[in-house]
Amino acid sequence: MTDKEVVIDCRNVVKTYGSFTALNDVSTSIHRGEVVCVVGPSGSGKSTLLRTCNGLETIQGGTIEVLGQHMPGTRKELETIRRRAGMVFQSFNLFDHMSIRENLVLAPITTLGLDRSTADQRAQDSLDRVGIGNQIDKYPNQLSGGQQQRVAIARALMMQPEVMLFDEPTSALDPEMVGEVLDVMRDLAAQGMTMAVVTHEMGFAREVGDRILFMADGQILVDQPPDTFFTIPTDERLTTFLSKVL
């Protein structure tokens, strides 16, 4: 993997909220085509780390480069990077007042300058890709949670991103809908998408992840491929964590 291009590079990242240190000297990188899953107890800084990579959080120390661009950069540069790095949130965050179609075409039309028919076609393709092509004219509140999250993934795919950031994409879902969202993510990974996934789904991390990061107290304590991550736990806190979630 290391010979591939670095897509996300975090060096000594520090993030504080007042006196609380959310990220404490975090360094890691993600290469093109890699799927990196981030696990750990809540409050460990997983989501914060992911959000800093999209400029949704400012950092107080260290550097982050995404697709060769120093973050956050100017407003224009940040917007450009965000168009190339898709993000999926725990709470879907669809635009409730817009149809699924409008949710999907808004960004490509207003930022990439796509014409309406190209954007419509791409919307249909994106929805087909996540298996809900027949829902294009519905509104978000007419869909189940799993469907809404798949729309959110399709919306991110509309920008044809080079990397996708998933922030606990299945944590807000009813158990029976987790599978359909993970299936979509599995397909994306199989198609070679570079992905950073904050998740509590150990099965998914084990099966799809190329590397798994274990975070606690704002630090990355373990960074291992799945086969060693689960079988040869090197860290006491990871052992405790795994005994609770597995």
Binding site: E79, I81, R82, A85, N93, D96, T110, T111, M159
Partner: peptide
């Protein structure tokens, strides 16, 4: 909804839009 704002920002949509 602050989440919708974040989603819009994460798509690189400019502030006026």
């Amino acid at each position: 909804n602050p989440g919708q704002l974040e989603a819009a920002m994460s798509l690189g949509i400019p502030a006026h839009t």
